[in-house]
Design a protein around this nucleic acid. Structure first.
Length: 836
RNA sequence: GCGAAAGUGGCGGAAUUGGUAUACGCGCUAGACUUAGGAUCUAGUCCCGAGAAAUCGGGUUAGGGGUUCGAGUCCCCUCUUUCGCACCA
């Protein structure tokens, strides 16, 4: 049964579309170059067009939008753009499953999401939208690839790569996660495959990527990136086989070289077959074959017993000339360092386990306990585990006795002198594998000519268009391989028959530079208009999920630095300040998913409460950087608050009797007390809201506004309505509300008779004098326990405060018969009386 | 195993950075207005004890210890949770 609505009641269904339309018509959100104002580029991670926005998108976008609106009111020229990361596998899966073309599916989803983003009341400048699957965009993605290619930052090599059997494609190392090494997208454990693939030289930037001094990013992200990059200082040492063949190893402990009693090569190491003696051949080959075939899951399980075989070959330890056996074992990884190690079982746990298993010599060369008085190494055959701490060198020829602090440097210097090694730094970071054996991505702009090899597609032939007329194989393999008219082409160099690269680019390539395309999404003289770049870049605040810490956020930094060195961009970093939001879970505290049925649909909430309420609740419901489970009932409180705010400012004439200052008044009259209180609270709140919006602390912004609303209701009952202070409170309140609940704020601003949109009004200034208090509550403690609260004038002398505290009723009871030992006065706060 | 972050009412969470712990909201309790209420308004709501009540006393920020006049905040130990990495030489 539909009841009649009170026309004066708060009705978001009426005011929200009204204001969205007005903002659009007036071009309120258009951000254009304006040298007269400081610019502010507020970027939030763009969504993948999966179908519709879920509450998690809102949680990410709405507070970011509020922050951007706040910056605009503070006088900045704010760019807040939005786009779509539109290439990727889900589109292709939909195509295979439901027989819809990925393009159709993707662009239909984008259409739908446009509507949702508008409904949210965001300040997006839609003129600047970019869609990565649009030829106008990927033309430049391909252009960047070519820049990397000609500058030797892109290369092709055959390598064992991670392959997702479900997605039918290779993955970058960053996209393989978890202890079972599964695909980041679909969860299927990956397998190894030997393939020729394109890589970017991210490792060239490993050192610089560790430098966060120019950016303000969460420590958590810096830590994650640092660990991912994994810098190790050590030495690169050269052992030689008996035939003089060098075997290079990397070690972080060159000071233990006298204890290197064998070498271990990864099964993939090129020297394995060369070194293997005739009698060991069969066994070694069997082991290598098995190891290579093994899945990474089996191979990298740390708890399994070490395996390996002796190659029959020997090498010379350059430190002591000893002849030591060379083994091959799968605990040595082919991709890190040189794929070969010197094994020092006495001082490395892995080598120790291996030595014990195969009865190899364990020779301690470091004094234990950091070289404590009288300490001597335990004999190798007595050891129960490796001794990994630092200590003076022992049994190490001329270096015996070198103290721990100098051991590293002196060992390296000594080895260097002998031409057996040098100091070196190793990184865990690998080059970025960008090839994907998928259709729905930006084609790699390379042509293979039997004569000229890999030839870049000339710039003027970009974009290499993704053909629409493709047929899907039931296996899910990329249809580009089967598209003869597309695949067969001519060599740009000789004009002879040639074939296109059928792989496409990792979508992280597309998202590495989207922030640059927003600057001029239709510019065709380059990836972006340099004038726009000069004005807007770098990004001032970047918001998004922490899950991208070691993927997108490393790629985009690498990308930018590489482009800087090529000369395409300036600046060392693309994004100055990063803030992460947490994840909103379902009401059952589990990750939201359709299969669990715990997905919260924002559209339904907007229908019921309005976008302003949903926005405000998302800011209020949790610490933004933490996130947490959704609470469907909690939103009622935010809805109530906005209704109260509405009636507070629309029904004010029905309030109590105006407390006109004309009332014959001494400073102590109730009327003035009400006014002072009101102004104090207003300006204190303004101070807090300003600070908290600045710091992305959205929950306390809403809490402070709720508190002030309570206070204003009280003041209204006390007769503040009609006074200048009330008018001021009204105005400031609506302005503070504007970033949080933009529609209702503009409506209330209009009702108040404000000029133009609330959203371009200057942010109010704090009246420090009004915010300050004349009287403070002095807390009186006895032995640290609260005993009394006394109202005293602000700025009271310490002596005076002390006196009042000692005489206060509350404290006296606890002082009787006691000796006062000490009195601590914290000005304006408390007095603590210490008694025996 | 290593690394990081975090533990505050029934719940989400505040606490000006060492100075009144539990702001704000949800939920709950009672009342008012209502034909009705998943609307609105008012009051109460950390725990224990005393009191008819106003109040008064004691305790409390995962647990234990320490520094300090004073600790949710700093230090040490233990436990729990979440996240990341995981044979990286």
């Amino acid at each position: 049964m539909e009841r009649e609505k009170d026309p004066r009641a708060y009705d978001p269904a009426v005011i929200e579309p009204k204001w969205q339309q007005r903002w659009e018509e007036s071009g309120l959100h258009n951000a254009d170059i304006d040298p007269s104002r400081p610019k502010h580029y507020a970027l939030t991670m763009l969504p993948y067009p999966s179908g519709e926005l879920h509450i998690g998108h809102w949680y990410a976008i709405a507070p970011s939008d509020a922050q951007a609106r706040f910056m605009r009111m503070r006088g900045h020229n704010v760019l807040f753009p939005m786009g779509f990361d539109a290439f990727g596998l889900p589109a292709e899966n939909a195509a295979i499953k439901r027989n819809i073309h990925p393009k159709t599916w993707t662009f239909a989803n984008i259409d739908r999401m446009h509507g949702q983003l508008r409904r949210m009341g965001t300040m997006i400048d839609w003129r600047r939208e970019m869609i990565s699957a649009h030829p106008e965009y990927y033309r430049w993605t391909q252009w960047f690839f070519l820049q990397f290619f000609v500058n030797d930052l892109a290369y092709r090599k055959k390598a064992a790569v991670d392959w997702c059997p479900s997605c039918n494609t290779t993955l970058a190392r960053e996209q393989v996660i978890g202890d079972d090494r599964h695909c980041e997208r679909c969860g299927t454990p990956v397998v190894r495959k030997e393939l020729a693939q394109w890589f970017f030289r991210t490792t060239q930037y490993a050192e610089e990527l560790l430098d966060f001094s120019k950016i303000d990013w969460p420590e958590r992200v810096e830590t994650l990136q640092s660990r991912w990059i994994g810098r190790s200082e050590g030495a690169s040492l050269v052992f030689r086989t008996e035939t003089g063949e060098p075997i290079e190893v990397f070690t972080t402990r060159p000071d233990t070289i006298w204890g290197a009693t064998f070498l271990v090569l990864a099964p993939e190491h090129a020297l394995v077959s060369k070194l293997t003696s005739a009698d060991r051949k069969e066994e070694v080959e069997a082991y290598v074959t098995a190891a290579v075939r093994q899945s990474d899951l089996q191979r990298e399980a740390t708890d399994k017993e070490k395996t390996g075989v002796f190659t029959g070959g020997y090498a010379i330890n350059p430190a002591n000339g000893e002849r030591i056996p060379v083994w091959t074992a799968d605990y040595v990884l082919p991709g890190y360092g040189t794929g070969a190690i010197m094994a020092v079982p006495a001082h490395d746990q892995r080598d120790f386990e291996f030595a014990r298993r195969f009865d190899l010599e364990i020779k301690p060369v470091i004094v234990p306990d950091g070289g404590a008085e009288g300490a001597l190494p335990v004999a190798g055959d007595q050891m129960v585990e490796a001794s990994t701490e630092r200590g003076p060198m022992f049994d190490s020829g001329p270096l015996t006795g070198t103290p721990a602090g100098e051991a590293f440097a002196r060992s390296v210097a000594w080895l260097e002198e002998k031409g057996a090694g040098k100091k070196s730094v190793n990184f865990r970071l690998r080059d970025w594998l960008v090839s994907r054996q998928r259709y729905w991505g930006a084609p790699i702009p390379i042509v293979y000519c039997p004569e000229h090899g890999a030839v870049p597609v000339p710039e003027d032939q970009l974009p290499v268009l993704l053909p629409d007329d493709v047929e899907w194989l039931p296996t899910g393999e990329s249809p580009l391989k089967l598209h003869a008219t597309w695949k067969n082409t001519t060599c740009p160099v000789c004009g002879g028959a040639a074939e296109r690269e059928t792989d496409t680019m990792d979508t992280f390539m597309c998202s590495s530079w989207y922030h640059l395309r927003y600057l001029s999404p239709h510019y065709d003289g380059g990836p972006f208009d340099p004038a726009e770049y000069r004005y807007w870049m770098p990004v001032d605040t970047y918001t998004g999920g922490i899950e991208h810490a070691t993927m997108h956020l490393i790629y985009t930094r690498f990308f930018h630095k590489a482009c800087r060195d090529i000369g395409v961009v300036q600046d060392d970093e693309p994004m100055l300040k990063l803030r992460n939001q947490g994840i909103i879970l379902g009401e059952d505290s589990e990750k939201m998913s359709k299969s669990r049925g715990n997905v919260v649909a924002p559209d339904e909430l907007v229908d019921r409460y309005g976008a302003d309420t949903v926005r405000a609740y998302l800011m209020f419901c949790a610490r933004w950087d933490f996130g947490g489970p959704w609470n469907g009932r909690g939103i009622e409180g935010t809805a109530r608050w906005l209704r109260r705010v509405w009636s507070l400012f629309t029904e004010e004439s029905e309030g109590g009797t105006p407390a006109t200052p004309a009332t014959p008044a001494t400073p102590a009259t109730p009327a003035n007390t009400v006014i002072d209180r009101l102004r104090r609270k207003v300006h204190q709140t303004l101070k807090q809201v300003t600070r908290d919006l600045d710091q992305f602390q959205f929950n306390t912004v809403v809490a402070a506004l709720m508190e002030l609303q309570n206070e204003l209701s009280q003041s209204r009952n006390d007769g503040a309505v009609g006074t200048p202070a009330w008018r001021e409170a009204h105005e400031i309140y609506v302005k503070m509300l504007a970033p949080v609940a933009p529609h209702v704020a503009d409506e209330l601003w209009e009702k108040l008779g404000g000029e133009g949109s609330i959203h371009v009004q200057p942010w109010p200034e704090v009246d420090e004098k009004a915010a300050s208090v004349e009287e403070v509550t002095l807390v009186v403690q006895v032995n640290g326990k609260l005993r009394d609260r006394i109202t005293v004038p602000v700025g009271i002398a310490d002596d005076e405060a002390r006196k009042i505290a000692l005489e206060s009723e509350g404290s006296r009871r606890f002082l009787e018969g006691k000796e006062v030992r000490q009195v601590i006065v914290v000005p304006g706060r408390l007095v603590n009386i210490v008694v025996s």
